[in-house]
């Protein structure tokens, strides 16, 4: 027989759940449902939604490619000042996203520390481009991935890597076939967080990449601007974004659980 759940846990849990879900319910109640289908299939919303999904997914890929090795380094290397590095990695979490966007401009902008050379040598200018959106989202979302994957790396028993070495596996093969599969739950969790954060990103995106329909206007930007003139439309856009992200995450989750 199942033991009874202690009320000291259940009560705050229920309050916590309500705290998270009630604002959502508010959106749903206030939504002008009649205009929802029209909004859903309007060209601008479709464009913003496609751009959002594309950019969030590309940003997540960038985060995976750079973030997983970074997490590994933080978890496994004996670099001096690793604790400080670990704290610095979380800076984008603490930084107001708009400030993050300004910081990106200062470095990668047309006159930025690095950006001026990108412009001079390669004619590449990142602000106001879709690539800029991906970059801004990756900047803000990467800590979610790194923290989650680093935790998984630290929890993984390094002796399995030694066992792989005694079987003749190189460091890279060991990482690919032994370490990475063992931290996969952490990577999946981190990827989900990272993607969700990237999808909802507003401040850094609009500051670094600006806002231009079809190029840099993602759903959160569209929502914000709609709020200026037509709050109802903003609610509808928010619900669209919400439904799509929940559908994608739920779909992925089922896949991963089956796998």
């Amino acid at each position: 027989m199942r033991s009874r759940l202690p009320v000291v846990l259940v009560l705050p849990a229920v309050i916590g759940l309500a705290f998270l879900l009630v604002p959502l319910a508010g959106l749903l109640v206030e939504a002008p449902w009649a205009t929802l289908p029209a909004q859903l299939f309007s060209a601008e919303v479709g464009q913003a939604l496609r751009l959002s999904l594309l950019c969030a997914s590309l940003a997540t890929i960038v985060c995976l490619v750079l973030g997983v090795p970074l997490a590994w380094l933080l978890a496994r290397s004996d670099l001096p000042g690793r604790g400080l590095l670990r704290a610095l990695v979380t800076v984008p979490l603490v930084l107001p996203p708009v400030v993050g966007g300004v910081a990106l401009l200062l470095v990668l902008g047309r006159r930025g520390l690095v950006g001026q050379y990108l412009d001079q040598w390669f004619g590449v200018s990142l602000p106001f481009t879709t690539a800029g959106v991906v970059l801004a989202e990756a900047f803000v979302a990467m800590p979610f991935l790194v923290i989650s994957v680093e935790g998984a790396f630290r929890a993984a028993d390094p002796r399995y890597e030694e066992a792989a070495a005694t079987l003749g596996a190189s460091r890279w093969l060991t990482f690919r076939r032994v370490t990475l599969p063992s931290v996969m739950p952490g990577v999946v969790a981190g990827t989900v967080l990272c993607w969700a954060r990237a999808l909802g990103e507003f401040g850094a995106t609009i500051t670094f990449a600006g806002n231009f329909p079809g190029k840099t206007t993602t759903m959160p930007l569209a929502v914000y601007l709609a709020l200026e003139t037509d709050p109802d439309a903003a609610i509808v856009l928010s619900i669209v974004l919400l439904l799509v992200s929940v559908a994608v995450l739920a779909g992925l989750r089922d896949r991963w659980i089956r796998a």
């Binding site: 401009l105 200062l106 914000y224």
Partner: peptide, 19 residues
């Protein structure tokens, strides 16, 4: 335009940074 900003301050940020 290359960007349609959400408010004047955002526009000014981009001008003052030379973007």
């Amino acid at each position: 335009p290359d960007t349609l900003e959400q408010d004047v301050k955002a526009v000014l940020t981009k001008v003052s940074l030379g973007e």
